Simulated scan of single mutants.
Amino acid sequence: MCGPCCGIGPVFTCSGCGSIDEPYADGRCTRCVLQVRVQGLLSDETGHLDPRLQPVADILTGAARPKSVLHWLGHSTAARLLSRLTATPAGLTHELLDALPQEPRNRYVRGLLVSAGIAPDRDETLAQTELWVASTIAELPAGRRGVVHAFADWHTLKTARRQAARGRYTAGSASQDRTEILRAIDFLDWLDTQNLTLSRARQGDLEHWLDQAPGHRRGLVAFIRWARLRNLADLTLPAPRTALPQHFLDDAEMHTQLRRCLTETALPLDVRITGALVCLYALPASRIAALTADDFTQDETGSYLTSAPAPSCCHHGSPSSSGT
């Protein structure tokens, strides 16, 4: 039952708005307390709220769960950052936030300002990539900064902006772009340890580095192609190594292995059966593993193993090479 129904209505009547609700503080309901605290957060020292900040106040006070916003105001570092930034409402721009460390609280405040219409909407994934590129290049030694900056600006970011214009620049795209730039930096760092420059590097140097870090090949493709097209290096990324078979059994060895499968009782029966099927029919292990007892049948004409749409005939207890 509510307070008035229990005969104690005044206790549950908000002194601010007059609604019947559970009091939160100073005899006021949660919504009224939230309005007061948001006003204090966004106002200047005289208690004046700049009209340009009113959309932010409306978003915070209009939240569906005012208690959650009150908790955020009291404990979140993002709320304290917002309070500092609103001291100069005219300066609330993306450029101001870009100059700050790109931390979660920064991203939250940015999203709040965009939602309020104070900061314009933008492709944040692309913008964060551009900021990352700028900070990463700034930390490089002067000797490597020029090449990486040219590659990032004229290849990576140019492609990223083209994708963003079509609405196709995703978080995965940004991750791949960062990987390409990092692999380029890794390769240039290695060349420096070898007292080499990009222009003096030879094909053997590139292949030697890839042997040491084979997982970096994919991320280096774009940089090597870009450097070659601009005559910065005479390098070609070698084709990836394939996993094609390299070791084969001759006929004599094959017969020896088959004889073991047929006669060596010390081997487990499932190993003998599997080995015999491989030697006789070259059945892949995946198909052998899928065989069941129902795939083997016997009648007056012989024994049959169905390993494919057409049955394999097994006359007189030994498989035949026909009908696989």
Score class of each variant (00 low, 15 high):
258 L>G: 04
3 G>R: 09
164 A>K: 09
61 T>Y: 03
199 S>K: 15
203 Q>D: 02
184 A>N: 11
217 R>S: 02
248 F>Q: 13
158 K>M: 14
170 T>M: 08
214 P>D: 00
83 S>L: 10
46 T>G: 09
98 D>N: 14
33 V>H: 14
59 I>N: 01
292 T>K: 03
40 G>T: 11
181 I>R: 08
264 E>P: 07
209 W>H: 10
55 P>T: 08
231 N>G: 08
193 T>P: 00
32 C>D: 03
147 V>L: 13
15 S>V: 12
138 A>M: 03
310 A>W: 11
140 L>M: 01
86 T>P: 07
109 V>P: 12
202 R>F: 01
45 E>A: 11
310 A>K: 10
199 S>Q: 11
11 V>H: 06
32 C>F: 03
175 S>I: 09
20 I>R: 14
286 S>A: 13
144 R>W: 07
82 L>R: 05
112 L>V: 01
70 L>R: 14
17 C>G: 15
317 G>M: 02
305 L>H: 01
103 E>L: 15
292 T>M: 02
283 L>K: 03
227 A>L: 06
222 A>F: 01
39 Q>L: 08
211 D>L: 13
149 H>T: 14
144 R>L: 12
30 T>K: 14
99 A>R: 10
262 L>G: 01
35 Q>C: 06
208 H>E: 05
75 H>W: 15
88 T>Y: 08
11 V>S: 07
277 L>S: 11
18 G>Q: 10
249 L>Q: 08
64 A>Y: 03
164 A>W: 07
206 L>P: 00
101 P>E: 04
128 Q>R: 15
182 L>H: 14
237 L>N: 04
317 G>F: 02
149 H>Y: 15
92 L>V: 09
195 N>E: 14
272 R>L: 08
120 P>N: 04
263 T>D: 13
76 S>M: 10
155 H>Y: 05
266 A>E: 07
32 C>N: 06
63 A>R: 12
115 S>D: 10
130 E>R: 11
266 A>I: 02
231 N>D: 11
127 A>N: 03
69 V>H: 08
308 A>R: 08
293 A>V: 11
150 A>F: 13
6 C>M: 15
27 G>I: 11
97 L>R: 06
95 E>M: 03
124 E>R: 14
